[in-house]
Protein backbone atom coordinates (compact mmCIF):
# COMPACT_ATOMS: atom_id res chain seq x y z
CA UNK A 1 0.00 0.00 0.00
CA UNK A 2 2.76 2.30 1.01
CA UNK A 3 4.69 1.49 -2.15
CA UNK A 4 1.68 2.20 -4.31
CA UNK A 5 1.10 5.53 -2.64
CA UNK A 6 4.74 6.34 -3.11
CA UNK A 7 4.48 5.46 -6.78
CA UNK A 8 1.43 7.66 -7.24
CA UNK A 9 3.17 10.48 -5.43
CA UNK A 10 6.28 10.20 -7.58
CA UNK A 11 4.26 9.95 -10.78
CA UNK A 12 2.29 13.07 -9.88
CA UNK A 13 5.46 14.96 -9.14
CA UNK A 14 7.03 13.80 -12.39
CA UNK A 15 4.03 14.90 -14.42
CA UNK A 16 4.07 18.27 -12.73
CA UNK A 17 7.79 18.63 -13.41
CA UNK A 18 7.22 17.72 -17.06
CA UNK A 19 4.48 20.34 -17.39
CA UNK A 20 6.75 22.87 -15.73
CA UNK A 21 9.51 22.12 -18.20
CA UNK A 22 7.08 22.65 -21.06
CA UNK A 23 5.93 25.93 -19.51
CA UNK A 24 9.51 27.03 -18.95
CA UNK A 25 10.67 26.13 -22.44
CA UNK A 26 7.66 27.82 -24.05
CA UNK A 27 8.18 30.93 -21.98
CA UNK A 28 11.88 30.94 -22.72
CA UNK A 29 11.25 30.48 -26.41
CA UNK A 30 8.60 33.18 -26.45
CA UNK A 31 10.91 35.57 -24.65
CA UNK A 32 13.75 34.98 -27.04
CA UNK A 33 11.42 35.22 -30.03
CA UNK A 34 10.34 38.62 -28.72
CA UNK A 35 13.92 39.77 -28.61
CA UNK A 36 14.68 42.54 -31.07
CA UNK A 37 18.33 41.60 -30.89
CA UNK A 38 19.17 40.66 -34.46
CA UNK A 39 21.44 37.64 -34.42
CA UNK A 40 22.79 38.70 -37.80
CA UNK A 41 24.07 42.09 -36.75
CA UNK A 42 25.03 40.78 -33.33
CA UNK A 43 27.29 38.10 -34.76
CA UNK A 44 28.25 39.22 -38.21
CA UNK A 45 28.31 42.92 -37.48
CA UNK A 46 26.35 45.69 -39.20
CA UNK A 47 29.32 46.76 -41.30
CA UNK A 48 29.94 43.31 -42.64
CA UNK A 49 26.27 42.92 -43.43
CA UNK A 50 26.29 46.15 -45.40
CA UNK A 51 28.99 44.87 -47.70
CA UNK A 52 27.26 41.55 -48.36
CA UNK A 53 25.11 40.64 -51.30
CA UNK A 54 21.40 39.95 -50.79
CA UNK A 55 22.03 36.31 -51.60
CA UNK A 56 24.64 36.00 -48.88
CA UNK A 57 22.38 37.69 -46.38
CA UNK A 58 19.57 35.33 -47.27
CA UNK A 59 21.86 32.40 -46.67
CA UNK A 60 22.84 33.79 -43.31
CA UNK A 61 19.21 34.48 -42.45
CA UNK A 62 18.24 30.92 -43.07
CA UNK A 63 21.28 29.81 -41.05
CA UNK A 64 20.24 31.93 -38.09
CA UNK A 65 16.61 31.01 -38.64
CA UNK A 66 15.34 34.57 -38.76
CA UNK A 67 13.19 33.93 -41.84
CA UNK A 68 10.88 31.34 -40.25
CA UNK A 69 7.95 32.34 -37.97
CA UNK A 70 8.49 31.91 -34.24
CA UNK A 71 5.79 29.31 -33.64
CA UNK A 72 7.11 27.07 -36.38
CA UNK A 73 10.59 27.44 -35.04
CA UNK A 74 9.40 26.50 -31.53
CA UNK A 75 7.55 23.43 -32.72
CA UNK A 76 10.53 22.34 -34.77
CA UNK A 77 12.79 22.89 -31.84
CA UNK A 78 10.55 21.11 -29.35
CA UNK A 79 10.08 18.16 -31.69
CA UNK A 80 13.81 17.80 -32.14
CA UNK A 81 14.44 18.31 -28.44
CA UNK A 82 12.28 15.35 -27.55
CA UNK A 83 14.32 13.28 -29.97
CA UNK A 84 17.45 14.39 -28.16
CA UNK A 85 18.49 16.94 -30.76
CA UNK A 86 18.76 20.36 -29.18
CA UNK A 87 19.77 22.04 -32.39
CA UNK A 88 23.00 23.63 -33.40
CA UNK A 89 24.67 26.44 -31.56
CA UNK A 90 25.06 29.44 -33.79
CA UNK A 91 28.08 30.75 -31.95
CA UNK A 92 30.03 27.57 -31.51
CA UNK A 93 28.75 25.94 -34.70
CA UNK A 94 28.37 22.67 -32.88
CA UNK A 95 25.40 20.65 -31.68
CA UNK A 96 23.95 22.28 -28.56
CA UNK A 97 23.88 18.95 -26.73
CA UNK A 98 27.62 18.56 -27.27
CA UNK A 99 28.38 22.03 -25.99
CA UNK A 100 26.15 21.61 -22.96
CA UNK A 101 27.76 18.26 -22.26
CA UNK A 102 31.22 19.75 -22.49
CA UNK A 103 30.35 22.80 -20.38
CA UNK A 104 28.55 20.71 -17.80
CA UNK A 105 31.62 18.51 -17.50
CA UNK A 106 33.54 21.63 -16.51
CA UNK A 107 30.84 23.13 -14.28
CA UNK A 108 29.40 20.09 -12.53
CA UNK A 109 32.49 19.14 -10.52
CA UNK A 110 32.73 22.72 -9.28
CA UNK A 111 29.03 22.92 -8.51
CA UNK A 112 28.76 19.56 -6.83
CA UNK A 113 31.85 20.15 -4.68
CA UNK A 114 30.59 23.58 -3.66
CA UNK A 115 27.12 22.21 -3.04
CA UNK A 116 28.34 19.42 -0.78
CA UNK A 117 30.87 21.57 1.06
CA UNK A 118 28.47 24.45 1.63
CA UNK A 119 25.82 22.02 2.82
CA UNK A 120 28.08 20.39 5.37
CA UNK A 121 29.67 23.65 6.47
CA UNK A 122 26.35 25.48 6.59
CA UNK A 123 24.71 22.75 8.63
CA UNK A 124 27.63 22.67 11.05
CA UNK A 125 27.56 26.44 11.47
CA UNK A 126 23.80 26.43 11.94
CA UNK A 127 23.91 23.61 14.47
CA UNK A 128 26.70 25.34 16.36
CA UNK A 129 24.88 28.68 16.41
CA UNK A 130 21.52 27.22 17.26
CA UNK A 131 22.95 25.28 20.18
CA UNK A 132 24.20 28.46 21.81
CA UNK A 133 22.00 31.33 20.70
CA UNK A 134 23.25 34.69 21.82
CA UNK A 135 26.82 33.50 22.39
CA UNK A 136 29.79 35.17 20.76
CA UNK A 137 30.18 32.31 18.29
CA UNK A 138 26.53 32.61 17.34
CA UNK A 139 26.87 36.34 16.83
CA UNK A 140 29.90 35.88 14.60
CA UNK A 141 28.14 33.22 12.55
CA UNK A 142 25.02 35.33 12.17
CA UNK A 143 26.97 38.40 11.19
CA UNK A 144 28.83 36.34 8.61
CA UNK A 145 25.59 35.06 7.13
CA UNK A 146 24.03 38.52 7.00
CA UNK A 147 27.11 39.98 5.34
CA UNK A 148 27.35 37.14 2.84
CA UNK A 149 23.72 37.24 1.82
CA UNK A 150 23.88 41.02 1.55
CA UNK A 151 26.87 41.01 -0.77
CA UNK A 152 26.67 40.24 -4.48
CA UNK A 153 28.48 36.96 -5.06
CA UNK A 154 30.34 38.24 -8.11
CA UNK A 155 31.99 40.89 -5.99
CA UNK A 156 33.06 38.30 -3.43
CA UNK A 157 34.59 36.45 -6.38
CA UNK A 158 36.42 39.62 -7.44
CA UNK A 159 37.68 40.02 -3.89
CA UNK A 160 38.91 36.42 -3.95
CA UNK A 161 40.83 37.13 -7.14
CA UNK A 162 42.32 40.27 -5.60
CA UNK A 163 43.36 38.50 -2.42
CA UNK A 164 44.39 35.03 -3.54
CA UNK A 165 45.53 35.51 -7.09
CA UNK A 166 46.97 39.00 -7.19
CA UNK A 167 47.97 39.81 -3.65
CA UNK A 168 49.01 36.37 -2.41
CA UNK A 169 49.59 34.86 -5.83
CA UNK A 170 48.45 31.41 -4.73
CA UNK A 171 45.95 30.66 -7.45
CA UNK A 172 45.79 31.47 -11.14
CA UNK A 173 43.67 34.45 -12.12
CA UNK A 174 41.31 32.81 -14.53
CA UNK A 175 40.36 30.08 -16.96
CA UNK A 176 39.81 26.47 -16.13
CA UNK A 177 43.16 25.65 -17.71
CA UNK A 178 46.38 27.58 -18.21
CA UNK A 179 46.33 29.87 -21.21
CA UNK A 180 48.32 28.84 -24.24
CA UNK A 181 48.39 25.17 -23.39
CA UNK A 182 46.78 22.63 -25.69
CA UNK A 183 43.69 21.16 -24.14
CA UNK A 184 45.02 17.60 -24.07
CA UNK A 185 48.19 18.77 -22.36
CA UNK A 186 46.28 20.11 -19.39
CA UNK A 187 46.94 18.10 -16.29
CA UNK A 188 44.51 17.20 -13.59
CA UNK A 189 46.33 19.38 -11.10
CA UNK A 190 46.00 22.34 -13.47
CA UNK A 191 42.28 21.83 -13.59
CA UNK A 192 42.16 21.46 -9.85
CA UNK A 193 44.11 24.65 -9.29
CA UNK A 194 41.76 26.63 -11.48
CA UNK A 195 38.71 25.20 -9.81
CA UNK A 196 39.75 25.96 -6.24
CA UNK A 197 38.74 29.61 -6.14
CA UNK A 198 35.35 29.15 -7.85
CA UNK A 199 34.58 26.30 -5.46
CA UNK A 200 35.68 28.38 -2.50
CA UNK A 201 33.56 31.38 -3.46
CA UNK A 202 30.48 29.27 -4.19
CA UNK A 203 30.93 27.42 -0.90
CA UNK A 204 31.41 30.53 1.20
CA UNK A 205 28.36 32.19 -0.33
CA UNK A 206 26.32 29.01 -0.24
CA UNK A 207 26.50 28.39 3.50
CA UNK A 208 24.42 31.37 4.61
CA UNK A 209 20.97 30.10 3.79
CA UNK A 210 21.34 26.58 5.09
CA UNK A 211 23.17 27.82 8.20
CA UNK A 212 20.46 30.29 9.18
CA UNK A 213 17.72 27.79 8.46
CA UNK A 214 19.46 25.10 10.51
CA UNK A 215 20.01 27.55 13.35
CA UNK A 216 16.30 28.34 13.55
CA UNK A 217 15.42 24.68 13.40
CA UNK A 218 17.91 23.74 16.12
CA UNK A 219 16.65 26.50 18.41
CA UNK A 220 13.09 25.41 17.77
CA UNK A 221 13.94 21.81 18.54
CA UNK A 222 15.79 22.69 21.73
CA UNK A 223 12.78 24.58 23.01
CA UNK A 224 10.34 21.84 22.06
CA UNK A 225 8.48 19.62 24.49
CA UNK A 226 10.48 16.76 23.11
CA UNK A 227 13.82 18.25 24.11
CA UNK A 228 12.53 19.16 27.54
CA UNK A 229 11.22 15.68 28.14
CA UNK A 230 14.53 14.23 26.94
CA UNK A 231 16.30 16.49 29.44
CA UNK A 232 13.96 15.29 32.15
CA UNK A 233 14.99 11.76 31.31
CA UNK A 234 18.60 12.69 31.79
CA UNK A 235 19.53 13.07 28.15
CA UNK A 236 21.62 16.20 28.02
CA UNK A 237 24.51 17.73 26.10
CA UNK A 238 25.79 15.54 23.29
CA UNK A 239 23.23 12.86 23.95
CA UNK A 240 20.39 15.30 23.47
CA UNK A 241 22.00 16.83 20.41
CA UNK A 242 22.90 13.63 18.60
CA UNK A 243 19.96 11.65 19.90
CA UNK A 244 17.20 14.10 19.04
CA UNK A 245 18.12 17.57 17.82
CA UNK A 246 20.39 16.59 14.95
CA UNK A 247 17.81 14.27 13.41
CA UNK A 248 15.15 16.91 13.47
CA UNK A 249 17.36 19.57 11.90
CA UNK A 250 19.09 17.44 9.28
CA UNK A 251 16.24 16.48 7.00
CA UNK A 252 14.84 19.98 6.49
CA UNK A 253 18.37 21.23 5.90
CA UNK A 254 19.03 18.64 3.21
CA UNK A 255 15.78 19.35 1.41
CA UNK A 256 16.28 23.10 1.62
CA UNK A 257 19.76 22.71 0.26
CA UNK A 258 18.52 20.60 -2.65
CA UNK A 259 15.81 23.10 -3.39
CA UNK A 260 18.35 25.89 -3.51
CA UNK A 261 20.12 24.41 -6.50
CA UNK A 262 18.71 27.21 -8.67
CA UNK A 263 20.56 29.76 -6.59
CA UNK A 264 23.75 27.74 -6.89
CA UNK A 265 23.39 27.74 -10.68
CA UNK A 266 22.80 31.49 -10.61
CA UNK A 267 25.89 31.92 -8.47
CA UNK A 268 27.84 29.72 -10.88
CA UNK A 269 26.91 31.96 -13.81
CA UNK A 270 28.36 34.98 -12.02
CA UNK A 271 31.37 33.28 -10.53
CA UNK A 272 32.35 31.66 -13.83
CA UNK A 273 32.20 35.07 -15.42
CA UNK A 274 34.62 36.49 -12.85
CA UNK A 275 37.05 33.59 -13.14
CA UNK A 276 36.57 33.25 -16.92
CA UNK A 277 35.83 29.65 -16.16
CA UNK A 278 34.54 28.08 -19.37
CA UNK A 279 31.53 26.32 -17.90
CA UNK A 280 27.82 26.30 -18.41
CA UNK A 281 27.32 29.69 -16.79
CA UNK A 282 29.73 31.42 -19.09
CA UNK A 283 28.19 29.68 -22.07
CA UNK A 284 24.77 31.00 -21.00
CA UNK A 285 26.09 34.55 -20.81
CA UNK A 286 27.82 34.23 -24.18
CA UNK A 287 24.68 32.80 -25.72
CA UNK A 288 22.66 35.66 -24.27
CA UNK A 289 25.04 38.33 -25.48
CA UNK A 290 25.47 36.73 -28.87
CA UNK A 291 21.79 35.98 -29.47
CA UNK A 292 22.52 32.27 -29.77
CA UNK A 293 18.93 31.17 -29.31
CA UNK A 294 19.32 27.38 -29.58
CA UNK A 295 22.12 27.32 -27.04
CA UNK A 296 20.35 29.65 -24.60
CA UNK A 297 17.17 27.59 -24.85
CA UNK A 298 19.10 24.38 -24.38
CA UNK A 299 20.82 25.73 -21.28
CA UNK A 300 17.57 27.11 -19.88
CA UNK A 301 15.76 23.81 -20.26
CA UNK A 302 18.67 21.77 -18.95
CA UNK A 303 19.05 23.94 -15.85
CA UNK A 304 15.30 23.90 -15.30
CA UNK A 305 15.44 20.11 -15.49
CA UNK A 306 18.25 20.13 -12.95
CA UNK A 307 16.30 22.36 -10.57
CA UNK A 308 13.08 20.39 -10.89
CA UNK A 309 15.04 17.17 -10.54
CA UNK A 310 16.63 18.41 -7.33
CA UNK A 311 13.25 19.45 -5.95
CA UNK A 312 11.78 16.09 -6.85
CA UNK A 313 14.71 14.36 -5.20
CA UNK A 314 14.16 16.47 -2.08
CA UNK A 315 10.49 15.48 -1.98
CA UNK A 316 11.34 11.83 -2.44
CA UNK A 317 14.05 11.91 0.21
CA UNK A 318 11.54 13.39 2.61
CA UNK A 319 9.11 10.60 1.82
CA UNK A 320 11.69 7.89 2.20
CA UNK A 321 13.56 9.16 5.25
CA UNK A 322 10.91 10.74 7.44
CA UNK A 323 8.97 7.91 9.08
CA UNK A 324 5.93 10.15 9.44
CA UNK A 325 5.79 10.56 5.68
CA UNK A 326 6.88 7.00 5.02
CA UNK A 327 4.31 5.26 7.14
CA UNK A 328 1.74 7.95 7.60
CA UNK A 329 -1.25 7.81 9.91
CA UNK A 330 -1.55 6.02 13.19
CA UNK A 331 -1.97 2.35 13.88
CA UNK A 332 -5.43 2.64 15.27
Amino acid sequence: MSLKRFGVFTAKKLIRAAILVVVVSTAAFALSALSPVDPLSANVGANALGSMSAEQIEKLESYWGTDTPALERYLNWAGDFIKGDMGTSLLYRMPVSEIIGEKLAASLPVMITAWVLSGILGFAIGAFSGSRPGSLGDKIARTYCVVISGTPSFWIAILAVMIFSIWLGIFPVSMSVPAGVLSDMVTFSDRLKHAVLPVMVLTLTGVAQVAMHTREKVIETYSSDMARYALMRGESGRKLFFGHVLRHALLPAVTLHMASLGELIGGTVLVEQVFSYPGLGQAAVNAGVGGDLPLLLGITVVTALMVFGANLAADIIYRVVDPRMRRGGSLI
Binding site: R16, I19, L20, V23, V24, A27, A28, A30, L31, S32, L34, S35, P36, V37, G262, E263, I265, G266, V269, L270, A284, V285, G288, G291, L296, I299, T300, T303, A304, V307, F308, N311
Partner: peptide
Protein backbone atom coordinates in the same frame (compact mmCIF):
# COMPACT_ATOMS: atom_id res chain seq x y z
CA UNK B 1 2.36 26.74 -12.17
CA UNK B 2 3.56 30.16 -13.29
CA UNK B 3 5.02 30.84 -9.86
CA UNK B 4 6.74 27.46 -9.80
CA UNK B 5 8.11 27.96 -13.29
CA UNK B 6 9.49 31.36 -12.30
CA UNK B 7 11.06 29.95 -9.17
CA UNK B 8 12.31 26.86 -10.96
CA UNK B 9 14.53 28.73 -13.37
CA UNK B 10 17.70 30.14 -11.90
CA UNK B 11 16.83 33.75 -11.24
CA UNK B 12 19.76 35.09 -13.25
CA UNK B 13 18.79 33.06 -16.30
CA UNK B 14 15.21 34.27 -16.14
CA UNK B 15 16.28 37.89 -15.92
CA UNK B 16 18.72 37.32 -18.72
CA UNK B 17 15.93 36.02 -20.97
CA UNK B 18 13.58 38.87 -20.14
CA UNK B 19 16.25 41.49 -20.61
CA UNK B 20 17.07 39.92 -23.95
CA UNK B 21 13.42 39.90 -24.98
CA UNK B 22 13.30 43.61 -24.29
CA UNK B 23 16.39 44.29 -26.33
Amino acid sequence: MLTDACMGLPHILLMLLISLALG
